[in-house]
Design a protein around this nucleic acid. Sequence first.
DNA 1: TTCCGCCATGAATCCAACC
DNA 2: CGGTTGGATTCATGGCGGA
Lengths: 404, 404
Amino acid sequence: MRIARAGTAVTKSQLKVLRTEHSHRLVPAVASPAVQSVLPVNEILVGDCLEKLASLPPASIDLVFADPPYNLQLEQTLSRPDQSLVDAVDDDWDKFASFADYDEFTRAWLSGVRRVMKDNATIFVIGSYHNIFRVGTILQDLGFWILNDIVWRKANPMPNFRGRRFTNAHETLIWAGKSAAAKNYTFNYEALKAGNEDCQARSDWFLPICTGTERLKNETGSKTHPTQKPEALLARVLLAASQPGDLVLDPFFGTGTTGAVAKKLGRSFIGIERDETYAKAARARIAAAEPYPDEAVSAAPSKRAQPRVAFASVVEAGLIAPGAMLCDEKKRHRALVRADGTLMLASAGAELSIVGSIHKVGALAQGLPACNGWTFWHVERNGKLAPIDDLRTTIRGALKVAAE
Amino acid sequence: MRIARAGTAVTKSQLKVLRTEHSHRLVPAVASPAVQSVLPVNEILVGDCLEKLASLPPASIDLVFADPPYNLQLEQTLSRPDQSLVDAVDDDWDKFASFADYDEFTRAWLSGVRRVMKDNATIFVIGSYHNIFRVGTILQDLGFWILNDIVWRKANPMPNFRGRRFTNAHETLIWAGKSAAAKNYTFNYEALKAGNEDCQARSDWFLPICTGTERLKNETGSKTHPTQKPEALLARVLLAASQPGDLVLDPFFGTGTTGAVAKKLGRSFIGIERDETYAKAARARIAAAEPYPDEAVSAAPSKRAQPRVAFASVVEAGLIAPGAMLCDEKKRHRALVRADGTLMLASAGAELSIVGSIHKVGALAQGLPACNGWTFWHVERNGKLAPIDDLRTTIRGALKVAAE
DNA sequence: TTCCGCCATGAATCCAACC
DNA sequence: CGGTTGGATTCATGGCGGA
């Protein structure tokens, strides 16, 4: 049995699961020993995704992680404010002639993946607004059952350089079961809760993007793959929805983040990748990966820093009303609170149009280069002046419950 | 003209936009004065969403906020009641049929909404993983252009009682323009940034759900509407993507959160709601809402809206004399001011014939593809270097006085 | 050795007015 | 309508080199 062979440190409860699967599903699926023997565990299949999927036996996979092309549809170049050029994803593999073409491609690979999933297997697909809605629709149309959509909030996203949209600071993962009937999928609820300060794991995850030494580079020092995912993201996926010894399929393997994390966490993997350059880098990477000690294979609580609070959220929360007046401690300067969280300086007789952040307006009022608006501006409550920093403290108390 | 009436402090460039829209779109659309006169500003249209949308003139709306139904099993507007999801989860045909019904409904109302949107209008649609993927796909298929997907992270989501999934702690908003060609949509970038600690606004928003006194209750104490959205969410939408006086459409008005917030923020609204009970609650709520003071909601001055000033007029005004020398902040480059408002680069020993605009010469001096000459070039005054942007500010001040 | 400043960079559907 | 020009625009992090 390849699956049993590939597993490491299988616990009693895990054994029970394996046994159950064996008796109910694996046996019919692997009636032909010839087929079973070719299940390429911990290997990278280099070639076309659909062909390689078709070569795998049905109902053999425990978990799927898929990072398909996003179909970004970029048409121009983009420069940073310092005139440096953004290194965009312009690879051929991300180009599709139309939404219809992208849909056809998506339907094909998702159908192929669904065939090789065990009935209680689940799938994660990651994407952005360019493609994720199409992926989600097709998942539903094919009979998958969505369990959650999950938001990967990026700690350090690329800014919006032209100031014409919100900073695109997240990507979306869809987590789905093979069908609505499959209720006995793996979800390590207790472990996730224990690793999250005894608080249920939420559908929003806060993680940095992949940079630094984790980011693979080629000989010339440029990135090996344009869209390498952070290992922390894959770790959270595998820890949440698989057990040690499980077999994880990644049909868009790239440089093998899924494989490296699977090895570290005591899972097996099968990767499909059509680009030999990526596959080669993945092989070297996975060979160098060291499995963690068994007892370390559990979710680790993440550090949390003091959350940054915007003055706009103080206004939104109703702690101070638009139109209210602020002043400094000595009542020498006054400013009006606006609905969007900016201030308008109320200078005697002068132009009333100075509008800006609490910090900027505080600095302008005093003629200083900078100012901490939180401590400079005060609000009158019960005849006493209190710094608006007190309002921030209130907000932080509420945030602490849920924010990371 | 309702639109001009509603506008406040219309600038020259805005007037031009209005004129363009008037001549190209509004006039043909409102050929019949009777139709124009019935634009039901600040009213709630009680009835079928599609019918009411069809009664509105085309290209008349500045911003749309839509919170469509997504519970297939309870949705009565769908042409076929759906029992298939519960009873026959394995039946792909039934499943497809019910999704198809939802898709048909979605395509219908989104088409109706698109017709009444001005070309530079945008739309926000909110949903969860049950429906948002289908909404996003249909938005794209209808020609809308997605600008962002936005995640509303809930401060206090309902816990997951079964412990079989991640706590569903967010909802998704899709922000889209009417088409990819429409680039001049409203996005109050600078105000959002100023209200967010001078840091550009991200695609993930953290807000509490609607509870407490904000939550409408009926006589028996139960909630009036099952999915009432928090006003803070609507406030952020309106503050980000509309201007005071703009007309906001909400085709699923419910208990009127959009209308109440629009009134408070100096926007107009049109609501469509088929349930008279909800509409009645909304009317009372909006009547009780108090607008914030004008100066708390007026459009924040943005650099983009400032009138253009030619460097030639700075020279003409005598603020800097022909023959004067400019340099960059680090005194690495020097250029001579010419009487016609062009600069001549003074490179050491090399050809002196490089002449061009402040931007071109700045770019050439640094070997960059582009440069903002206003902030790059400096002039020495009283032993200190000041950017020539200061001179532009002086000119603009004079222009402002002359205009009044 | 440590600290500080400078520089590079990340899945990006990223401008608008004028001639 | 297309080409050209004006000029507005960035956050967090890691690496590196000099002090």
